[in-house]
Each structure stands twice: as structure tokens, then as C-alpha cells.
Design a protein around this nucleic acid. Structure first.
Length: 947
DNA sequence: GTGTCTCACATCGCTTTGTCAGCA
DNA sequence: CTGCTGACTTTGCGATGTGAGACA
């Protein structure tokens, strides 16, 4: 590109520069393959070509994958929650059934008497020592459990609740989607539909281990021992990784992608599991490859080998039976040996505590035997069928308590984290679920139990994994300390892999001096910061400040360290309450910004007061008092901190005067606002009324002079020429306005007749009409046109007809102002006599009036009060129009007369019958009193608007 | 071969005192 | 002319949560 001074014409400022010719390569080759640039300059005719290659889709796919992962996570979490709640509800229903009296009676009848007596003999009177009583009770429970386990109830290997991972369920659902209803009975879950089902199992003395535990609980209750049904909810884990076999190193060498390798690893893993675990076979038999009938050698399973392309559902059943047969051979998964999902807690009255009882394995008072995590250690490689996350104990009254801490090993280190402790929302959710089943009031034993559970956590011991220390209530590692946390005093409790372990109680949180100020505290003089951290700059101002400081530091040290800005953090113990400068001579101390910091009430200076009213600063300023606006906090928008100002701080002695002045100003402002509002209301009313009047007048004029006021009618008129005599002049009446009466406003105050306008041709009304209905009027409105208008003829004819009918109105048709109308009204008021009878009689003289009924009377009432002129034919015309509607269902004779009247009045030679097919009921006739009342109301209204 | 650690990415929470045009 | 009000814009960093993969 070459720059030439000639190429910059007429720029004097540019003339100061000496332009130099330089050689520029004709083409610029961009090294970036994605952006090719060819510049086009004036001298060497190089073209500018910008080629933008669309970026690789990598990012998009990444995004999509992330979105999918997120959606899946939400789904997993949701599923986990719903499943947990359902399982809890299920346990509650079972727990309720365990109170069935018939079930109790049946169980008691099946229990040997000596076991009954074992409990009956434990009594204060026989054994005063409660410790001994406690031991006796425990022994009795042990005997009962032993009898139940060894003699009475035989546990079936299937039918109990098992834990399943999200993926397993997904696969299962995908498989059984169509057959889920037909296949109901094939489900391996034991079906207990009522207490009767439980009773059946009690009589058969057999069932799943869940049923065993439930029946044992019922038996305890029958024996009058407070017993809880304890359930470890086996909900779908929310973590995606749970139950997934990990990626094998041996898979690495495969030519396929890692993901595929992982999938295959999972598949083959499933295979290996399949051979030795009944639960796993279900999962494996439902693997997607099989579902899809994929028999490729790479994915073909050992099981699939012999089964060819059988339907998945059938396969499921077959494999299940197969596994059931083999289940008994698998000792490690024997449900009578492994930790259960349901068990019992009995309350030892003597000890005042709950004893766990495992009626399947015959354990009593051994809380550690229920956590399956220890059991799994020797079963590595198989999916867990029991995961302890939530353990709920349900009492006879249906209320429950979360007793996970009693049974879970490493509760605080592991299980609590799965429950969501410290994570926030999930823990919140679980708390809310527990709250649903918690007794609304507390018993003493609840408090005792809480203490016990708390002690369990305290005596749990140090975590064995690093993650266990994270958020542990007792222990902390310095690596897990937060930015603003420090350990003080650093008392070592022990070591974890060479790292010192400190008590959580030694952790104290620090704040920067500024942040302490926001709490109304200042760092004591001479205190050294306990920790130095990198300063954060969030707002633009702060950032600039930091940059300047950094720049200054660089220049000072000549490009030396350029170290980042560090800030010191202080502990609360290093601070003291901030004491602002007092108010002296009514002068309020202010900060650099001219206001006062008032983040906490203690920051209010001595001798001052905070008046938190909006707009009070103006008052204080007007009165000339010293004041400071109170900054009570900040809002953050657009990388800026915006101070929140709430009122002012003034000297105490000025408070009364300022507040009084403020209230006064408020009152004034309120009054002003009220007056303004009133004014607006009046204006709006006036506008409305005037608008209605104009509308009414226009309608009367066009309705009376001719009925072809609408384009529709214009059409009708022309159509009617073909079949004259059929159409009625009231075509206008079929519009909505005729059906829906607008409002009982004085409708003929501005009685402006076309004739008057014709005579004057000018004037407000003429303009108005012209403006309001320029086209609508058609020939009928042509009176506003000059005489040479093509519509002149129609106008003449029309007006001639009208004039014949309206002799008296002619002279009094000028538009009136609101004031004039009011005056008229006053005059009328003075001269008004018998308003109801008089007008009714008078119009009867005209044929049109004779046909009028209720509606007519009313209208006449109005006209009589509104205008001094009598025999107002325009009104009659209007009434006539109205009459058509109102009298449509009255005698046909009336209709004829009416037609005749409207024919004449409407200046139409076509005596058409009413075109409307509507059937309208006449308005009921009003009596004189009612009419008078209405008239009075109307006058009042008119007076109001005349003002 | 599993449990634990590490890394990458997502999400949350902290941050702490403007400017300008339009209108009354 | 003055003073008030509302629109403007949507950051960025560290801590922490989450999940996948590596490794002891």
C-alpha cells in the first residue's frame, strides 16, 4: 500500500506533515491459513480479499456435549430425588401396615409364650436397677431375634429391594418400555399389597428379607415394645460414576477411540460380573448391544452366544430364571448374610435408647453391621446392591427420623457428602424431605438420640481419605483452608500422610480492613495482618487503582519485581468497634465522597440521628442545616459499585425541625399531586363528554337527514334502487351503536342542524364534521361542500326535506359552549314544571311520537330538559330510530306508522321495512318519580361538567 | 482392580462511590 | 439553567462443585 499526500485532498492540517513514499509489498500473504488478506491500495493494484473460514465445529460439539452432560446431570439428580421420596413413601406405607391389629394378633399367636414372658417379666418392681433391666431387655430381644432368624422365618433369596445405578435403570426402562405393563408379574420384587399380604407371609413363615424385617417390627409392636421400622433408602445414585466400571489400562492399546474402549470395557466387565452375580446378569442381559440385536463379534456376550437374536424381553426372563437357580450357590450375595435394607430398632425403656435389631442375621445392638461398604470390600468388581446413603427410622405413629449417622461408617467423611452436607442445595432438599416425616414436636428420647448421634460423629475418628477431611466438622487440613481462613492457634491433632491435621474449631475467618469497616469495625492500631492475599479488583475504579499502583511500583523499582498488590487480612479479635467522629456544632462528619458510611447502626456518630426518608436531603438543604447522606450499602451493576443512600444523618438537635418541614413538604406535595390529579380527571371527563356529544350530534344529523351515512348504506341505497320499497331507511340502525346504548348523557345539547351549517357553510362544527366523517357522509354530508360541488344536488334535496320537518330548530342550532349549556340548564331548572307529563303529551301529536313507548318517554324527558325548543324533530327522529329497535316486537301496526314516520323524517322515499332481524324486548315503562330522579341526576351531572 | 487424586470445566459468590441524556 | 432521574450493560476472578481419567 502506498500513501500519497495527493490522496488526502484539502486537509490543511495534514500539510504540516511530510509524506514519504515507501515501498510496500504488493501482496500480503497471510501466514494464517484461516485468514487470507489481500490489500487493495491505490498505487499497486492489489486486491483486498478477506476470506473467512468458518471455525472448526470442535467448539460447538464440545458445547453440545457439555449441554448434554448437564441435562443428564439434572436428570440424574431429579431421578435420585424422586426415587428417594418414593422409597420413603413406600416405607411409610409399610410402616403403617405394621400397626394392623389383626397382624399383631396373628404374630403373637405364632410366638412362643416363653418369649412373651421374657419381656413381661422385665419390670421396675422386679428389677429396680435400670442397667440390669436394660441388659435383661437386650437379652430378651436377642432371644426373640434368634428365634425369628433360626426357627420362625425363612428368608427367600429374592424379592428384596436392591440398589441400581442410573444407567442400569435407564437400560431397564429402555428394554421394558413396551412390555412394562404386560410384564408386571415377572418383576422380581415381592408384592405386598396390604397388611393381608404381610399376614400371608407371616403364616407361610417365609418371604424376602425385607418382609422378614417388617414382620419382626410388627411383632415387636405387638409385644408392646416401641419399635421402629428402619429403612436404608436404595435410591438411584445421583453420581454418574457410581457403579460404572472404571476404564481399564489393558484397553488402552485398542485401536478404537478411548470412549469406545471405555464402553467396551464396561460391556466386558458386565460379562465377567454376569458369571458370578445374579443382579449383574440382569444388567448385562439388557446391555444396549443386545437390545439392538448387535451380534458383532466384538460385542457379543457369552450369554448372547447361545441365544441368537431372541427378543430382549424373553431373554430377560430366561436369564432371570437362570440366575435364580444359581443364586443359592452364591454365598457372598446371600441376602441372609449381607447387610439388609430394612431392619428394626427397639426402644429400651430402661436405657432410654434405641437398639438396632437385624432379624435376618440375628444381630442385636450392633450398629456397625448395617453399613454395606465394609462388606463390599471383599466383593470388588460387582455392582453394589446395597448403598447406604439415607437411613430413616419410622415409628409407630408414622413419624420418622434420619438415623444415618448411627449406622454409616465414616458418616461425616463419606456419607454426609453423598447426602449433600456442605454442598448446600442437596442437603437442603434432604432436610426438607426429612422434615416431611419429622414429628412436629420433640420427645425427650429424640433429644437423647440427637446427642447420641452427635457423639457418634465425634467418636468416628479421623478420615482415612483426603476427601474425608474436606468439610469435616472436626478435622481440617491446611490445604483445604479457604482464602480468608487461617488456623489459630495451630494445635496439631495428628498427621495424615505427613500433613498436620488441625481441629476445625481452630479455623478462624479473616477479613480485609475495608471489609471489617463494612461491619462497623476497625483494625486496632499496631495489629499485623494474619495473612496476606492477592488483592482482587472487581470494579473498574479499583482495577485502575491497582494498575496505577502496579505501574508506579514498576517505575520506582525500574522494572523490578512488579509484584502483585497484596492485602492483609485481620481476625475479628484484632478489630474493635468503629467510633466515628462526633457531631460538633451541628456539623456532621463526612467521608471523602461527601456522605457518611452507615453500614451498621453503631456507625452513627455521637450526637447525630439518622432520618431514613427519601427526599429529606432536599429539605435539610433548603433549611440550611448541615447533613450527610447515609450510605447503607452497595448495589453492583456493570462492574460498578453503586452506593445505596437511605436518608440523611443530621445533628440530633435539628431532627425535629427537619422532620416537621419534611412532613409539611410531603403534605404540600401530596395536595399538589391530588389537585393535579383532579385536574386531569376533569379534563378527561370533559374530553369524553365532548367527544360523545360530537358523536351523538353527527349521528343524529346523518341519521335524520339521510340514512345513507355509511358506506355500507351507500351501497345498500344503490342496491335498493333495483328493488325499491323493500329497504327501510334505518339501515344505519343495524350497527352496534344502536344495540349498545352508550351512556345516558345529554345527547342533544349541541343540536346543530345541517341547515344552519348550510347557511353558514363555515364554523367549528362544519370543520368538525368534515374532519370526523369525510367519506362516511357520502352525498348526505355534501352540505359542507361549495355550491358547485358535484354533490350539491343531493344536499339541496335533503335539506329541503329536513327543513319541512324542523321549523323551530333552525334558529337555535349554533354550537354551545359548556358554559352556555350550564346556563341554559339553570334557566331550565327555574322554569321547569311537570317534566314527566308534559313532554309525554306533546310528542304524541306527531305520528312518530305516537308509537313511542318507554324508551321514547325517556328520551323526551331528556330533550325537554336539555333544550328550550319543543317539538324537536331531530330528537324524534332519533327516537324513531330507537323505536324501531325497541318496538320491534310490538304490534306491527306501530311498525307501519313508524316506517311512515321514519320515511318522512329520514327524507327517504323508500319505505323499507326494518332490515334487522333482531328481536328486542321493550324497555319497561318508568314511572314519573323514576323519571324525575333520572332527570335530577342528569342535571347534576351536567352542572358538574359545566363547572 | 479399586480407591483416591488430579485436572478441566461449570457454577457460584464476591465485589464496595459513574456518566450522560432527557426532563421538570 | 439547574438538578434530578433513569438508562446504560452484562465483568471477572477465585472458590467450589462435578465428572472423567490416571495412577498407586
Amino acid at each position: 500500500m502506498m500513501l500519497d499526500s495527493r490522496s488526502i485532498p484539502g486537509d490543511s492540517s495534514e500539510e504540516d506533515f511530510e509524506w514519504e513514499e515507501v515501498d510496500v509489498p504488493q501482496q500480503i500473504h497471510e501466514t494464517n491459513p484461516e485468514l487470507e488478506l489481500q490489500l487493495e491500495g491505490p498505487a499497486p493494484r492489489a486486491n483486498i480479499e478477506i476470506t473467512l473460514h468458518p471455525g472448526t465445529k470442535k467448539d460447538d460439539s464440545k458445547k453440545a456435549a457439555a449441554a448434554a452432560a448437564r441435562a443428564e446431570r439434572i436428570l440424574r439428580t431429579g431421578t435420585h430425588k424422586v426415587h428417594t421420596v418414593c422409597l420413603l413413601a413406600n416405607a411409610r406405607v409399610r410402616n403403617k401396615w405394621l400397626n394392623d391389629e389383626v397382624l399383631h394378633a396373628r404374630l403373637l399367636s405364632l410366638t412362643p409364650l416363653h418369649l412373651h414372658n421374657g419381656f413381661a417379666l422385665i419390670h421396675k418392681s422386679r428389677e429396680p436397677d435400670h442397667n440390669k433391666r436394660g441388659r435383661l431387655f437386650e437379652a430378651a430381644v436377642t432371644r426373640l431375634a434368634e428365634w425369628w432368624t433360626s426357627t420362625f422365618f425363612s428368608v427367600l433369596p429374592t424379592g428384596h429391594i436392591k440398589n441400581r445405578t442410573f444407567d442400569e435403570n435407564e437400560r431397564d426402562l429402555a428394554l421394558r418400555g413396551n412390555a412394562i405393563f404386560e410384564d408386571e408379574e415377572s418383576d422380581d420384587g415381592e408384592r405386598i399389597r396390604s397388611p393381608n399380604s404381610l399376614m400371608k407371609h407371616a403364616l407361610m413363615q417365609t418371604g424376602s428379607r425385607d418382609t422378614s424385617a417388617q414382620l419382626f417390627t410388627a411383632l415387636c409392636r405387638a409385644l408392646d415394645i416401641p419399635a421402629r421400622l428402619v429403612v436404608s433408602l436404595q435410591s438411584v445414585p445421583w453420581q454418574s460414576s457410581v457403579g460404572k466400571p472404571k476404564f481399564k489400562i489393558s484397553e488402552k492399546g485398542r485401536p478404537s477411540s478411548r470412549q469406545k474402549g471405555k464402553e467396551r470395557a464396561r460391556d466386558t466387565d458386565g460379562l465377567s460380573q454376569d458369571s458370578d452375580f445374579e443382579g449383574a446378569k440382569e444388567i448385562n442381559s439388557q446391555s444396549p448391544a443386545e437390545v439392538l440385536g448387535d451380534t458383532s463379534p466384538g460385542k457379543a456376550s457369552a450369554q448372547a452366544k447361545g441365544k441368537g437374536k431372541a427378543q430382549p424381553v424373553i431373554k430377560l426372563r430366561k436369564t432371570k430364571r437362570y440366575s435364580e437357580n444359581r443364586a443359592s450357590t452364591r454365598a457372598p450375595f446371600d441376602p441372609t448374610v449381607t447387610p439388609p435394607v430394612f431392619w428394626t430398632e427397639v426402644f429400651s425403656r430402661a436405657d432410654g435408647r434405641w437398639l438396632p435389631v437385624d432379624p435376618i442375621r440375628g444381630f442385636v445392638n450392633k450398629r456397625h453391621v448395617f453399613d454395606p461398604s465394609a462388606e463390599n470390600s471383599f466383593r470388588s468388581g460387582v455392582p453394589q446392591e446395597n448403598r447406604m446413603t439415607y437411613v430413616v427410622a419410622l415409628e409407630e405413629d408414622g413419624f420418622g427420623r434420619d438415623v444415618t449417622a448411627r449406622y454409616a461408617k465414616d458418616y461425616t467423611a463419606k456419607v454426609a457428602k453423598v447426602q449433600g452436607v456442605g454442598i448446600g442445595r442437596r442437603k437442603e432438599w434432604w432436610d426438607s424431605v426429612v422434615q416431611l416425616v419429622t414429628r412436629p414436636y420433640r420427645l425427650q428420647r429424640d433429644d437423647t438420640e440427637d446427642t447420641e448421634l452427635h457423639n457418634h460423629q465425634l467418636t468416628e475418628g479421623m478420615p482415612t481419605i483426603l476427601a474425608g477431611f474436606k468439610g469435616h466438622p472436626l478435622y481440617v487440613l491446611s490445604r483445604h483452608l479457604r482464602r480468608e481462613e487461617v488456623i489459630d492457634p495451630p494445635v496439631e491433632l495428628g498427621k495424615f500422610r505427613g500433613e498436620p491435621v488441625y481441629p476445625r474449631s481452630s479455623v478462624i475467618s479473616l477479613k480485609a480492613a475495608e471489609n471489617w469497616m463494612r461491619q462497623g469495625r476497625v483494625v486496632r492500631e499496631g495489629c499485623q495482618p494474619m495473612k496476606m492475599v492477592k488483592q482482587r479488583a472487581v470494579t473498574i475504579g479499583r482495577k485502575r487503582e491497582m494498575e496505577l499502583a502496579l505501574e508506579k511500583a514498576r517505575t520506582d523499582s525500574h522494572g523490578g519485581d512488579g509484584q502483585e498488590d497484596m492485602q492483609g487480612l485481620y481476625a475479628k479479635s484484632q478489630t474493635e468497634l468503629y467510633k466515628p467522629q462526633p457531631v460538633i456544632d451541628g456539623k456532621v462528619p463526612k467521608n471523602d465522597f461527601g456522605n457518611i458510611d452507615l453500614y451498621v447502626p453503631s456507625m452513627l456518630p455521637e450526637g447525630s440521628i439518622h432520618i431514613p426518608f427519601k427526599g429529606i436531603a432536599k429539605v435539610a438543604k433548603r433549611l440550611g442545616f448541615d447533613y450527610a447522606e447515609a450510605v447503607t450499602g452497595f448495589e453492583f451493576r456493570n462492574r460498578r459499585a453503586i452506593p445505596v443512600i437511605e436518608g440523611i444523618v443530621v445533628a440530633e438537635e435539628n431532627e425535629t425541625i427537619i422532620v416537621e418541614a419534611y412532613l409539611e413538604a410531603e403534605n404540600d406535595a401530596e395536595e399538589k399531586a391530588h389537585a393535579k390529579r383532579l385536574d386531569q380527571v376533569h379534563k378527561r371527563w370533559i374530553r369524553l363528554v365532548q367527544g360523545l356529544r360530537i358523536r351523538d350530534r353527527l349521528r343524529r344529523q346523518y341519521a335524520s337527514n339521510t340514512d345513507d351515512a355509511t358506506p355500507q348504506h351507500w351501497l345498500d341505497t344503490h342496491n335498493a334502487e333495483a328493488h325499491q320499497g323493500e329497504q327501510q331507511p334505518g339501515g344505519y340502525l343495524t350497527t352496534a351503536d344502536d344495540v349498545v346504548k352508550p351512556f345516558h348523557l345529554p345527547k342533544d345539547q349541541h343540536t346543530v342542524l345541517p341547515s344552519s351549517l348550510l347557511s353558514s357553510t363555515t364554523g367549528d362544527d362544519g370543520a368538525e364534521i368534515d374532519e370526523a366523517v369525510p367519506e362516511r357522509s357520502g352525498a348526505a354530508v355534501s352540505y359542507t361542500h361549495p355550491r358547485d360541488s358535484p354533490l350539491h344536488f343531493a344536499q339541496d334535496v335533503q335539506m329541503g326535506e329536513v327543513s319541512a320537518d324542523l321549523p323551530s330548530r333552525r334558529s337555535n342550532v349554533m354550537p354551545k359552549s359548556m358554559r352556555e349549556l350550564a346556563e341554559d340548564d339553570l334557566k331550565r331548572q327555574a322554569s321547569e314544571i311537570a317534566p314527566s307529563d308534559e313532554p309525554e303529551r306533546r310528542p304524541r301529536s306527531t305520528p312518530a311520537a305516537r308509537t313511542m313507548k318507554g324508551g321514547r318517554v325517556k328520551m323526551l324527558m331528556k330533550s325537554g330538559t336539555n333544550t328550550p325548543s319543543k317539538g324537536n324533530s331531530s330528537i324524534e327522529r332519533k327516537n324513531g330510530k330507537k323505536r324501531i329497535r325497541e318496538d320491534s316486537d310490538s304490534a306491527s301496526e306501530d311498525d307501519h306508522i313508524d316506517n311512515a314516520a321514519s320515511t318522512r323524517d329520514g327524507n327517504s322515499s323508500k319505505g323499507n321495512p326494518p332490515t334487522t332481524g333482531r328481536v328486542l324486548r321493550p324497555r319497561p315503562q318508568k314511572n314519573a318519580a323514576k323519571l324525575r330522579e333520572e332527570a335530577e341526576l342528569e342535571r347534576a351531572f351536567r352542572r358538574a361538567i359545566a363547572e
